[in-house]
């Protein structure tokens, strides 16, 4: 299958502080791809590079065969239009209601009929279990609801690639599970590729096809592959340790 996203020799840094170097992986079409690793290892930073919020120090990111990093940030519209991004905190625009948060990108995309916009907004909110919350402001709802509303906004334009930053963090196990089901169903029904930053093992084993492990110690990728395979057969002890919650079972080959 063709690679949807190719990351080649990517090095990321904040000023002079190098976060990760020489990342090398491919994300396949319709894949559910998990970026995992310990807290503060640079998972979210990698996501920010993938969506163009940060520029790499070295290396390139390709969408299909088009070089994203070589494109001038001002000309990245065609790439960005295919993205749906859900942020860790939800990042809802706080001066707008949930309904307006979703309708703004829709109107921007040129959907002018007020009726269509309204229907789409209700539909997207109902997908994440927030029907009837159109007129609430972000400050009036709980953290978990903000997250789901953030997902509804990310889905507003039926994205081709969905980026989710820690979708399950701070959710109760049931909500977290429902979110995982929703992600699976979205992938199956809309055929989108999903890139998730998480360290929730239940989600990783539940929905991910491929997982990338970022290793804090070596500041580069520890392994990439199917999460269950990595857990049992990875050559890298850090990966096995992570995926077994710190237990160290012998490597099964």
């Amino acid at each position: 299958m063709a690679a949807k996203i190719t990351v080649h020799g990517l090095t990321m840094s904040y000023g002079t502080l190098e976060v990760m170097h020489d990342l090398e992986f491919e994300i396949l079409d319709k894949d559910i791809f998990v970026i995992m690793g310990g807290s503060g290892c640079g998972k979210s930073t990698l996501l920010r590079h993938l969506v163009g919020l940060m520029e790499p120090t070295k290396g390139s990111i390709l969408y299909g065969d088009k070089d994203f990093t070589a494109t001038d940030p001002a000309d990245r519209g065609p790439f960005i239009r295919r993205f749906g991004v859900m942020y860790q905190s939800g990042a809802l625009w706080s001066s707008l209601t949930l309904g307006e948060n979703i309708s703004m990108p829709l109107e921007e995309a040129g959907i002018v009929s007020a009726k269509t916009v309204k229907d789409l907004v209700s539909y997207k909110l109902s997908l994440v279990g927030l029907s009837g919350f159109e007129d609430y402001y972000p400050s009036q709802i709980s953290g978990g609801m903000k997250k789901r509303a953030g997902l509804a906004r990310a889905l507003a334009l039926d994205p081709d690639i969905l980026f989710l930053d820690e979708p399950g963090a701070g959710l109760d196990p049931l909500s977290s599970r429902r979110l995982d089901d929703l992600i699976l169903r979205l992938r199956d029904s809309q055929g989108c590729t999903v890139v998730i930053v998480t360290h929730e093992l239940a989600s990783i084993f539940g929905i991910a096809n491929t997982a990338l492990f970022l290793d804090t110690a070596t500041r580069t990728q520890g392994a990439v592959g199917n999460p269950a395979d990595l857990r049992d057969h990875s050559d890298n002890p850090a990966v096995r340790l992570f995926l077994n919650r710190g237990e160290t079972p012998a490597k099964t080959s």
Partner: peptide, 16 residues
Amino acid sequence: SMKANEEIDALRTFGF
């Protein structure tokens, strides 16, 4: 506060 809350990033990734 919009910046601290990633709202400005969200504007960017929606093409605003």
